[in-house]
């Protein structure tokens, strides 16, 4: 029971948060964080637990978002129907991909997934009559307040993490990890490796598609370069999981928090620090530096990932014992 205490406390805090926090800006960041919990945890099922590294999760995210958008565009259905269908459509994209690409192992599978993401982005760009191409799809948001979106995102995050936790703790989870550790040994133990890789892919695609559908509803605008973005989604999903802890249940949750905070830290020029200093000192150089920092968040990600891989190769959650030990030692010395 003690093991479950921290997530439950965290959940309670998150559930009560909008009562205490009225700032739209802060709620927006929290919604992004929750979306990343869903995407990062989904990526982690396929790559972290099953060992099939994907560079193409933007495909599932974008397909989920476009499902919601296109239902509205073509059938005048509420884009919330996308929340019912987005995950399933992502699975429909995922399964043929799995059937074709799962015979590939290791880096070759990763390359194929990269091609999937980029390929679908081009399809969405070119098929203008169907998707609107680069014009994208715009919808009127259902709610003006951010609070409903926050709770929907929270529900999605909780459901996805909880369902993943259940699956990983049972037979499929053991099979996923066995496949990750040694596919030939797994097959000799009676594990249908192709079947279980596809199950893992389906779970992963489903929740990523759901996150995409929510994104459409929340942001109100999508175009192919936004939702099928290689660096904003496919790579970011990997970073979220690596920073938090690949192959751990709560790693991507922690990683999502760190990455969203980190991105915002850079985007705002260290929360306005440079702007403030620039005004105080009247130095244009500092203001200019602040502008550069705002552009440099990708560089920041790079450095963060290098630091994590060097010092916490299993991520914050995976190496939590190590972090505790080192912090404790510092305290003792002090």
């Amino acid at each position: 029971m003690k093991k479950n205490l921290l997530p439950l406390v965290l959940l309670a805090v998150l559930a009560l948060l909008p009562l205490a926090v009225k700032s739209n800006y802060f709620l927006h960041l929290m919604i992004l964080f929750l979306l990343w919990v869903v995407i990062g945890s989904s990526w982690n099922v396929l790559a972290g637990f099953t060992g099939q590294v994907s560079f193409g999760h933007a495909a599932f995210f974008g397909v989920g978002a476009y499902t919601a958008g296109l239902l509205f565009q073509h059938l005048q259905l509420s884009p919330w129907w996308g929340m019912a269908l987005g995950g399933f459509v992502a699975v429909l994209i995922g399964l043929p991909f799995g059937a074709i690409c799962f015979p590939l192992r290791g880096a070759y599978f990763a390359l194929a997934s990269l091609a999937l993401g980029e390929g679908i982005r081009h399809v969405a760009t070119i098929a203008e009559n169907f998707t609107g191409g680069m014009m994208g799809i715009m919808i009127m948001p259902t709610f003006i307040s951010k609070v409903p979106y926050y709770y929907i995102a929270l529900a999605l995050a909780v459901l996805s993490v909880l369902s993943i936790r259940l699956v990983i703790g049972a037979k499929p989870g053991y099979y996923f990890v066995s496949i990750r550790e040694d596919q030939d040994a797994a097959a000799s133990l009676g594990i249908n490796t192709t079947l279980y890789k596809n199950i893992s892919l389906s779970i992963s695609a489903f929740w990523t598609g759901m996150a995409g559908a929510l994104y459409m509803n929340y942001m109100g605008f999508i175009d192919p370069n936004v939702v099928f973005s290689l660096h904003d989604y496919s790579v970011m999903a990997i970073l979220v999981a690596i920073v938090g802890g690949v192959g751990t249940i709560y790693g991507p949750t922690v990683g999502a928090f760190i990455m969203v905070a980190f991105q915002e830290f850079f985007r705002t020029g260290f929360f306005g620090l440079f702007e403030y200093l620039g005004e105080k000192t009247g130095s244009t150089a500092i203001s200019a530096l602040g502008g550069a920092v705002q552009q440099a968040h990708v560089l920041g990600f790079g450095i963060l990932v290098i630091v994590v891989i060097l010092f916490l190769p299993n991520g914050v959650v995976g190496d939590w014992e190590k972090i505790k030990r080192n912090v404790f030692r510092i305290n003792q010395a002090g």
């Binding site: 990890v177 066995s178 550790e181 040694d182 030939d184 040994a185 797994a186 000799s188 192959g247």
Partner: peptide, 9 residues
């Protein structure tokens, strides 16, 4: 397996 294949982690 002759070359043992433990599920290492």
């Amino acid at each position: 397996f002759q070359v043992v294949k433990p599920l290492g982690r």
